[in-house]
Design a protein around this nucleic acid. Structure first.
Length: 422
RNA sequence: GGAGAGGUGGCCGAGCUGGCUGAAGGCGCCCGCCUGCUAAGUGGGUAUAGGCAGUGAUCCUGUCUAUCCAGGGUUCGAAUCCCUGCCUCUCCGCCA
């Protein structure tokens, strides 16, 4: 959520930012409603002040045993007016904040302007494209030969897009998750979190899924809970409605969770295998930091996510998203894309974003500064570290050998209890 | 699922026979004084959000308003009374 003051004081900044994100935003209506609302509040405050003063007079009269009937009669009318204006004001306020919740974050000034994903900028590339001197299989063939997973039975149980991992495939999934959690805890001092996999609407609102993207989430109708599309939602909400002492910042959390996405509107795209799923596993990194450090922390976060791919020896690149490709809540974002030899494509396995105060404002997540003891909103960041499905694709395809066995990278061997899949 | 208790400021904890209570008292924290150092003592300060004004910006000053879990209601007036919801705790039942 953006602060209303910036619409008042710097409407051009907002317009340009929204335009860069590809939003055609009508700010004028919002500003007009804000003006109207402020006039109401001013009037309301005056009326309430009057009421409070008179109430005090009534109290004094009663205390000394005088009759206050006249004052009370006069107040009855004013009180009615206050109530009417209160409800009008509240209604308008709700409308304003309702609209505000649909307005995305503005891109940071360092973000390249662009109109679509074509304008994203490749920042760096790590490793080399693996070469093979035999005809390689894609991950589906490899999975079938080694009985790692079974999409048909997954579909029978739940539906398409719900993978069933089997045998050493299931073990490998668990190994990847454990490896990534341990890595971030041991090397970077992240605190491990195991969050709820469902959140209420307030939590989903903080991170920006609600109200605009309600259709993308699974919801349990009876209890009004949402299955999380990412651990970002519960973990960011750990500190919702809190004031964190500055000395407790920064806070680094790492969490595994299953992620559930309806992927409404994306049917027909990337339907093969693991490329797009309704349920998948992900290890997520979340940071709460003071505003001054958030962009340095974004760079660090990206490198921390990259470290996983390096440790696994996978060829990847870092892409800086252009303004138009930024997600709703992000001010700046780097994607990590791993190379899939079978698909001959780069696959997105991580998104590392700085949300600045956008989520903090929505979730009222603040900190108390040491210098002047004032409160201010924290900056939040998160990045996948990383999502498993496409990682698995790259891993299987990269480490396949001619006889069909997969030689596991050393860091995974202890988690698997063996050196290869065959 | 059944029965009961309760939700007050950073924390603990009064108030809850409705009216100088934004809220006693304590702890913590900040500034000063005192003390050879520490401890103790002592004086003061210490919520958040919003409107308006000050030639005035997410700063400063003044002023007004709101907030005692949330939302309604009663009343001239609600932390205090009534209703609904949420949450926490205790006991019983069920259960991985």
């Amino acid at each position: 959520m953006l602060p209303l003051t910036i619409f008042r004081n710097n409407p051009e900044l907002v317009k340009n930012g929204l335009l860069a994100k590809g939003e055609t935003a009508g700010i004028e209506a919002l500003v007009e409603m804000d003006n109207r609302h402020r006039a109401m509040v001013t009037k309301l405050n005056a009326m309430r002040s009057e009421r409070n003063k008179t109430s005090e007079l009534i109290a004094q009269s009663k205390r000394i045993g005088q009759d206050a009937a006249e004052l009370i009669m006069a107040m009855r009318d004013l009180s009615e007016q206050v109530k009417t204006l209160e409800s009008e004001s509240a209604e308008l306020h709700e409308k304003i904040s309702g609209e505000l919740e649909y307005i995305p974050n503005l891109p940071h000034e360092s973000v390249p302007r662009g109109s679509n994903a074509e304008d994203n900028v490749v920042v760096r590339v790590w490793g080399e494209k693996p070469e093979f001197d035999f005809k390689i299989d894609n991950h589906l063939d490899l999975g079938a030969k080694l009985d790692l997973f079974d999409f048909n039975r997954g579909a029978k149980i739940a539906g398409s897009g719900f993978p069933l991992y089997t045998g050493q495939g299931a073990r490998l999934e668990r190994a990847l998750i454990n490896f990534m959690l341990d890595y971030h805890v041991e090397n970077y001092g992240f605190t491990e979190i195991f969050p709820p996999f469902m959140t209420n609407s307030a939590a989903s609102r903080t991170t920006g899924q609600l109200p605009k993207f309600a259709e993308d989430m699974y919801r349990t109708d009876i209890d009004g809970l949402y299955l999380i599309p990412t651990a970002e939602v519960p973990v960011t909400n750990i500190h919702r409605d809190e004031i964190i002492p500055e000395q407790d910042l920064p806070k680094f959390y790492v969490a595994y969770s299953a992620c559930f996405r309806r992927e409404a509107g994306s049917y027909g795209k990337d339907t093969r295998g693991f490329l797009r799923l309704h349920q998948f596993n992900k290890v997520e990194l979340v940071k709460f930091v003071i505003p001054e450090t958030s962009y340095a922390e974004l760079e660090a976060l990206t490198k921390q996510a990259e470290a996983i791919l390096k440790a696994l020896g996978l060829h990847y690149r870092v892409v800086e998203l252009c303004s138009a490709d930024l997600s709703f809540a992000a001010a700046k974002c780097y994607d990590l894309e791993v190379w899939s030899p079978g698909e001959e494509k780069w696959l997105e396995v991580s998104s590392c974003s700085n949300f600045e105060a956008f989520q903090a404002r929505r979730g009222n997540i603040r900190y108390r500064r040491e210098s002047d003891r004032k409160v201010d909103f924290v900056h939040t960041l998160n990045g996948s570290g990383v999502a498993t499905p496409r990682l698995l694709v790259a891993l299987l395809e990269t480490y396949q050998t001619e006889d069909g066995t997969i030689i596991l990278p050393p860091v995974l061997q202890k988690y698997m209890g063996k050196r290869e899949l065959k």
